[in-house]
Amino acid sequence: MNEPTPVDTYETLYLRLQEVVAQLEAGELSLAETLKLYEQGTLLAAECQRLLDAAELRVQQVQVGEA
């Protein structure tokens, strides 16, 4: 479970997307900051979308007595 799973990646990206939205909501930003956040948010949303579209169930089985 060391390598990041798609859901980890999705969750991380989605969390960041929410942070971006929250920052924009809080306001008090310069135009440059706003535009930068907007660009980030757009990229994050697109990546989230891509992950959802490409999602495939990952199944692994542990050996009895492993761990």
Partner: peptide
């Protein structure tokens, strides 16, 4: 797989 293929599943037999 149908509902949420994003989740990672580990089967512990």
């Amino acid at each position: 797989a149908r509902r949420c293929p994003l989740v990672t599943v580990t089967v512990v037999p």
